[in-house]
Amino acid sequence: MINYQIAKKILKKSIIKIKDEKIKSVNSLNRVASVNIYSSIDYPSGNNAAFDGFAINSKDTKNINKKINQKFKIIGSIAAGAKPFKKIIKRFDAVEIMTGGIIPKGFDTIIPIEKIVFFPSIKNRKYILINKKVDKFNHVRLKGSDYKKNEIVLEKNSIVQPNHILTFKTLGIKNISVKKK
């Protein structure tokens, strides 16, 4: 039997070439990535709501004070995964939006449902009342805030973990190159 130091020298001089193979990303747990894996899209694909609530334009609140409520007309509702909102948006309009719903152009902030006061009543919801200035991009997940297009999501020679598989599913990465076992 050879000693440890000699064995180590022999291994360092030897060229060990492990070939690559393409496999389904869902089957890649604990495998070693053989290439860098990049995002092919921005995720999320557009600005979307981080909370259930109402989307408004923050500019419409710049002159509001606590003594006077401003009415914002409810013009529709947007569910997560719904087609883009096509209505024309005017000043002091609001749209109900669910978590994950894409925010239409003309709106830039979300007021969570817990902070909403309805007018004339909660059962007859025609308007929401706002009595303070609201900042831009409140409760908004911005386009590409999780992953930007062409960003590395897993580096070469990294071991695939469960969170990487979730990322692959999210970004639509179906196959990846890994080292053969």
Rank of each mutant, 00 (worst) to 15 (best):
G76I: 01
K180R: 12
K174V: 02
Q5C: 04
E21L: 07
K67E: 11
V117D: 13
N63P: 04
I88D: 12
F119W: 13
S145V: 03
P44E: 05
M98L: 08
N36Q: 06
K149R: 02
I110N: 10
E96P: 02
I113A: 13
K105T: 13
K143L: 15
D52I: 06
S25Y: 00
F118A: 02
I159E: 14
I116M: 06
L129Y: 00
A94W: 06
A49M: 13
I152A: 00
D42S: 10
I6T: 15
S145Q: 06
L171P: 02
T167L: 06
I102A: 01
I128K: 05
K90P: 03
L142F: 05
S121R: 00
I152Y: 03
G101C: 08
L129S: 03
S34H: 02
N57P: 10
F72T: 00
I6A: 09
S145I: 08
P120H: 01
G101R: 04
K13L: 12
F72K: 02
S121V: 04
K174Q: 09
L11H: 09
V32W: 01
L29C: 11
Q161R: 14
S25G: 08
H139R: 10
K8R: 15
K133Y: 00
Q70C: 05
K22G: 01
I165L: 10
S121I: 08
K59Y: 15
K59F: 13
V32L: 12
R91D: 01
I75K: 07
K174D: 12
I88K: 14
E155L: 09
